[in-house]
Amino acid sequence: MNKPAAHLETAIVEQDTHPMADLLRMDRMPHIWCSGCGLGTGLTCFIMALKETGIPEDKVAVVSGIGCTGRVAGYLNLDSFHTTHGRGIPFATGLALANPDLRVVVYSGDGDLVAIGGNHFIHSARRNMDLMVVCVNNFTYGMTGGQAGPTTPISAKASTAPYGSYDYPFNIPYLAIASGATYVARWTSLHMRRLKNSMREALPKKGFRVIEIICPCPTAFARKNRLGSGLDLMKHYHDNSIIKHGADPREADIDMNGKVVCGTFLDIERPTFRDFQTENIAKQLGGE
């Protein structure tokens, strides 16, 4: 009856596959992320970066906690683990230590990584564990309707802060550096090329690497704070971000209407947990 014309059928059959289909679980599309959310662009950057590094797909594992960002593990066509709330880092710690051939990436949100998982975050940084942590910061618990979190700026409204959040937020680069991370960068989801480059740079490195992505949440955070659409937020990032490599992380606080300092804050090397295991402990036992 309503059969499409023959030329349309052909058109559907010949449609190109998604250029990242090999690294996405296409059987799980469409994803759950809202229109205007920055998670998709961040994930795109990650896939591009991974391809550019040439690291074999089989040797990368992604671990997530819970939340909108937590779903990243479920969409990537890699060995991927969707753990409990805040526990991505310790799960990844065991995974990485048991299997040194793996590059292990923890991809999760701000609430997951620095609130409920905050203790794991600082201790893993302290140990300089071989993990790359991508922390998507949208200033709120988006999946559950926009509750205040550990990064919610002072005075911002949230479903659990109807009069505004008056609870000092974490400055994630500062926290990471103070705790011992060896690579720390921040970009917004507007900075796709720079974000991808940072990811490409950090992926093959050793030690505890943190990349923060400032990400619009039009559905929860922006709506409650009348910040407009995802596009409006991108414009805000465009007008208000300052790229300052090597910036003092103490200057990287984020206010409701202030500037967002972006860039690579730190890129150093120091022995990792595994280096100490192999070089120090093994030596004492008479090994190599």
């Binding site: 671990v63 310790p90 048991a98």
Partner: peptide, 21 residues
């Protein structure tokens, strides 16, 4: 590895098991 707490401990052993140990 001496983890930072017991939540971390339990997760680390799960991760290690999936890493093959």
């Amino acid at each position: 590895i001496q983890m930072e707490d017991e939540m971390a401990s339990m997760n680390s052993i799960l991760g290690a098991a999936w890493g093959g140990w």
